[in-house]
Amino acid sequence: MKLAILDRDGTLNPLGDEYITSPEEWTPVPGALEAIARLNHAGWHVVVATNQPGLGRGLFDVVALNAIHAKMHRQLAAMGGRIDAVFYCPHAADEECSCRKPAPGLLEQICDRYGAERSEVQVVGSCAAHLQAGSALGAQLHLVCTGRSADVDAVATALPAGVPPGTRMHASLGDFASHLLPAAPGSRPPVPA
Results as ranks from 00 to 15, higher is better:
82 R>C: 12
82 R>A: 13
83 I>A: 10
84 D>G: 12
84 D>P: 12
84 D>H: 14
85 A>Q: 13
85 A>P: 14
85 A>F: 15
86 V>A: 06
86 V>L: 10
86 V>E: 08
87 F>L: 12
87 F>P: 02
87 F>D: 08
88 Y>F: 14
88 Y>P: 02
88 Y>W: 15
88 Y>E: 08
88 Y>Q: 07
89 C>L: 13
89 C>K: 04
89 C>E: 07
90 P>G: 07
93 A>I: 12
93 A>Y: 13
94 D>I: 09
96 E>F: 12
96 E>G: 15
96 E>L: 13
96 E>T: 14
96 E>R: 15
97 C>Y: 12
98 S>G: 14
99 C>Y: 05
99 C>N: 04
99 C>L: 07
99 C>M: 07
100 R>A: 03
100 R>Q: 10
100 R>Y: 08
101 K>G: 06
101 K>I: 11
101 K>W: 11
102 P>E: 10
102 P>Y: 09
102 P>L: 09
103 A>L: 10
103 A>I: 04
103 A>E: 11
105 G>R: 00
106 L>N: 02
106 L>K: 01
106 L>T: 06
106 L>Q: 02
107 L>E: 01
107 L>W: 01
108 E>C: 04
109 Q>C: 11
109 Q>I: 11
110 I>D: 00
110 I>A: 01
111 C>T: 04
112 D>F: 05
112 D>W: 04
113 R>W: 09
113 R>K: 06
113 R>A: 12
114 Y>F: 10
114 Y>G: 01
114 Y>V: 02
115 G>A: 01
116 A>V: 04
116 A>F: 01
116 A>H: 00
117 E>W: 05
118 R>K: 03
118 R>W: 02
118 R>P: 01
119 S>W: 02
119 S>L: 03
119 S>P: 00
